[in-house]
Design a binder for these strands. Structure first.
Length: 705
RNA sequence: GCGCCCGUAGCUCAGCUGGAUAGAGCGACUGACUACGAAUCAGUAGGCCGGGAGUUCGAAUCUCUCCGGGCGCACCA
């Protein structure tokens, strides 16, 4: 049922702590040669799974079940024959203790537990000194996430985007990739235009007055993005509030403003620049609270003014991806076939996507195609100017500019890109990929991933709680979509503040001996842990119906639960007066001695390390070691299918298995010195696994809880 | 009309290229703090995996179909 098939696809770049992966590969190779010798069959992908329960062993294959038909033999018979072949050559399979037939014809493999522990512990040691692995020739990836319109405060939907994106970046880096993190800024769109209309016409402010207001807000320590949140909602209403004639005028104002901003070099554009930059800065601050950082902020204004589109347009025309439509509703436009469209030559394709309008202006998708050519380094002669914009403790975040600074890093030219964008935009994303493919950039199209995810919505109860008026028919729905335009939603900073307030209250109660700064750090770490885990525990295409009760929960399957397990382990080492490093070194030495002795005591079970890991009463300990050995496998799978939730699940299961172990076995009072070392080593391995995996999720481990 | 996503326990969700007795968390009910701090642990109850058909030795998983819910399908941005 919950047997997991191990992916063979993507293992190449994982070079550390791959105990489980190695064993799996070895078994698959060996099985293949057995099948060849016995039945003259050459099967390339032999399924090797992790069984649903430990009593079935640590690895299993249903290959005998699959062969039953072609070999015209009962699956159990085949399994028996294969097992005999494997058993007779056990010496060639290091790390395995034996094989057996089970169920309808499964072949179950049992591992040499002591050897597994020895290898795992040894793999933990060097990581302590060098936690980050670097490949000699790392693949260059580009992840784009966050990309909030700079006209209002970030809300919970944006948090899901940024947390998913940031976590994926950490995962890629853990696997050895070189990753550039980009946050695309649409500073010339209608959303920014609307808030500019708000300042200029709803509030009737001049450029100087807007500037003064921004200074004033800054001086008072108030959030500009919050101010814009309200103004944006008011402006959206204002378009519909007046008489029909007035509303028509207001709409005209809206488009005139939009065009002035796109054009640049005027006062309206200057207001837009002031506001969008101030709001953008706030977004970066909000995300930094969650440990989210960026390398580069490409802006729409530069893509426009540096004329990326012109270069792309020529190539699109020349390669026949775009054609000029002379009939139908798209008459006078340059259009592109949609993915999967089957239209005979010369026939009118009414469904084609217009890329250049009949008035000669380019659509959003067109600009996006040009931008993505740049991302892959396929836009000859065009690049952004680069300026420093935001300083992080250990690096700069750059922003696009017309001229820019002479000395700057290079962005773009990636070999793989990931766009973290919600699933509602899958159509335009598919259009861009289609264009790349049409231009013959097949490899690039294949390495273009729309990292899509479902939205965060509010439960009706939550909406009412926040004081919004909810329509009668919406009350019975499972969730209501948030809307920046209506000012309907939970602002990111409000949620973070609320979480910190809740964790602070608990920390004040528990950590009376610590000073205020320490307590503050702990409360912040737990709050962020809770938030990040909450956003990551759901798989990407499940809609999150947001509710404060769930988001503010610190018990059960939550970030704090995982953090707590790690903190408990730290407490053990603190009380025990030793460190994980020392214990692991001690254990490695012990394991080595025992391994030497083992050859003399061949076949003698139940002694030494093997004994600590054998038997019903130690099954939970063995489960913990196994889980730890599985980490790189889980990372591999999570990257292959772009699903950070797998890692969140893994961290939780690890924490759960540790807590279970913690209650059953009391470490510090253990009298047998060797067993105590072994139990401490178990805790050390669990701690390093937890800290590492939580780190990939962007969750810090507090000193105390 | 076309396309994509979802439907699994009272609630919120896992279940990873088909595989062994369908799993968690929350909520409910029982129990466990003078041992490494209970933000924890142990246990009980709770499921026609939306319905139907097909493929298969084997289906929550693949195919088809129907039902229910959501989101997209502009020369808007």
């Amino acid at each position: 049922m919950c047997a997991a098939r191990i992916s063979l696809v993507n293992q190449g770049f994982l070079r550390f702590s791959r105990v489980y992966l190695e064993l799996q590969r070895q078994l698959a190779v060996h099985l293949r040669s057995v099948l060849k010798a016995k039945y003259s069959l050459d099967i390339e992908n032999i399924p090797v799974e992790i069984p649903p329960e430990l009593k079935f062993g640590e690895l299993a294959t249903p290959v005998a079940l699959q062969l039953a038909r072609s070999l015209r033999k009962a699956p159990k018979m085949i399994a028996q024959e294969i097992v005999e072949a494997l058993q007779s050559d056990l010496a060639a399979l290091t790390g395995f203790a034996g094989f057996e037939v089970a169920g309808a014809g499964y072949i179950n493999a049992r591992l040499d537990r002591a050897a597994f522990a020895r290898t795992t512990a040894a793999a933990e040691l060097p990581k302590l000194a060098h936690p980050f692995f670097k490949l000699a020739n790392p693949p260059h990836s580009l992840v784009e996430h966050t990309s909030i319109n700079p006209n209002k405060a970030a809300h919970i939907g944006h948090l899901r985007n940024a947390i998913l994106g940031d976590t994926f970046v950490r995962m890629l880096r853990a696997a050895g990739s070189q990753v550039d993190v980009q946050n695309y800024i649409d500073n010339t769109g209608v959303q920014v235009a609307d808030v500019v209309v708000g300042f200029l016409y709803v509030e009737g402010k001049s450029l100087a007055e807007v500037r003064a207001l921004l200074d004033d807000l800054k001086a008072r320590g108030e959030r500009v993005d919050y101010y814009c949140w309200d103004l944006y909602a008011r402006t959206s209403q204002w378009y519909e509030q007046g008489s029909e004639a007035e509303n028509a005028e207001r709409k005209k104002l809206r488009y005139a403003t939009l065009h002035a901003i796109e054009e640049g070099g005027n006062e309206t554009a200057e207001v837009a620049e002031l506001i969008s930059t101030a709001v953008l800065r706030r977004h970066l601050e909000t995300m930094l609270r969650l440990g989210i950082e960026y390398d580069f902020l490409p802006r729409e204004s530069e893509i426009l003014h540096l004329k990326f589109w012109e270069v792309a347009f020529e190539e699109l025309k020349q390669k026949g991806v775009l054609y000029f439509e002379t009939e139908g509703k798209n008459k006078g436009c340059w259009v592109m076939r949609r993915p999967g469209a089957e239209i005979a030559d010369g026939e009118l394709d009414e469904d084609a996507k217009a890329i250049v309008r009949s008035n000669g202006t380019v659509t959003y998708v067109g600009k996006d195609i040009a931008y993505h050519l740049w991302k892959f380094g396929l836009l000859p002669g065009r690049d952004f100017g680069y300026e420093k914009f935001f300083a992080y403790p250990d690096h700069e975040c750059w922003i696009s500019a017309m001229q820019g600074e002479a000395d700057h890093p290079h962005f773009g030219g990636a070999s793989a890109i990931y766009n973290v964008i919600d699933s509602r935009q899958s159509d335009p994303q598919a259009n861009v990929i289609q264009a790349l493919r049409g231009m013959g950039y097949t490899a690039q199209a294949d390495h273009y991933t729309h990292f899509s995810y479902e939205m965060v919505a509010l439960t009706p109860r939550c909406a009412v709680e926040l004081g919004y008026t909810v329509a009668e028919e919406d009350l019975s729905r499972p969730y209501i979509e948030v809307s920046g335009r209506k000012g309907f939603g939970v602002k990111a900073d409000d949620l973070i503040d609320k979480l910190i307030a809740a964790t602070s209250e608990e920390v004040e109660k528990r950590q009376t001996s610590r000073d205020a700064t320490e307590r503050e750090t702990i409360a912040r770490q737990i709050a962020i842990g809770a938030l990040r885990y909450f956003m990551l525990k759901f798989t990407r295409n499940s809609v999150i119906a947001f509710d404060f009760k769930d988001a503010l929960s610190f018990e059960g399957e939550t970030g704090p639960y995982c953090q707590y397990a790690a903190v408990r382990i730290r407490n053990i080492f603190r009380k025990g007066g030793t460190t994980p490093e020392n214990v692991l070194a001690e254990f490695a030495e012990l394991a080595r001695q025992r391994a030497d002795a083992h050859s003399e005591l061949a076949g003698q079970q139940g002694s030494g390390i093997a004994g600590f890991l054998a038997g019903e009463e130690n099954e939970d300990i063995w489960a913990l070691w196994l889980r730890a050995g599985r980490r790189s496998l889980v990372l591999d799978q999570a990257i292959t299918v772009s699903e950070p939730a797998y890692l969140a699940k893994h961290a939780f299961q690890l924490a759960q298995e540790f807590n279970n172990f913690y209650h059953k076995h009391h470490i510090l009072t253990e009298e047998d010195a060797e067993r105590k070392t072994f139990l401490l080593a178990t805790a050390a391995v669990a701690l390093h696994e937890l800290v590492t995996v939580l780190g990939w999720l962007g969750i810090e481990t507090p000193e105390a809880m």
